[in-house]
Amino acid sequence: MGRCVFVTVGTTSFDELISSVTTEENITILQDLGYDKLVLQIGRGTTTLKPYSTTSEFTVDVFRYKPSLAEDLKKADLVISHAGAGSCLEALEEGKPLIAVVNENLMSNHQNELAMQLYKDGHLYYCTCRTLGTTLKTMDLSALKRYEPGHPEIFASFLDKALGLN
């Protein structure tokens, strides 16, 4: 059973991330780490990557969108995602090790706020396209803390109390 890396750019595009992941150098790093399958969700991206298999049994799958990424997340052993809040939370709630890659072309994008905080809290790794290789080489996935889902029931009881119910 091989190990799979899932890369997701979310609803828009992030070509820089796709080309960074698929450089020869980074593919080699991934292979050294024991991964043999790469699945890329490229969104609106213009990357012309085609699915391929190399002789060294490393496969790459590419697709633009799916109604749900849940299946791909489940199958993944490592997720590399754009730093958008929705994608990060989805991967963490699935209990997957995550590298959030910030898009430096989108300055002051509030979407990065959450990824940054979750990085500070030790739930994920955080890097740019340029530092992805270094992060892959130096990361220790066992050091990541498990992300616990929030507590909507606390909100429910707070609201009942505030409204004088019960």
Partner: peptide
Amino acid sequence: ITVVYVESICRVESLS
């Protein structure tokens, strides 16, 4: 009418 606003989890240091 009681208006209840819950800011998104995405907002860590600035409000929308």
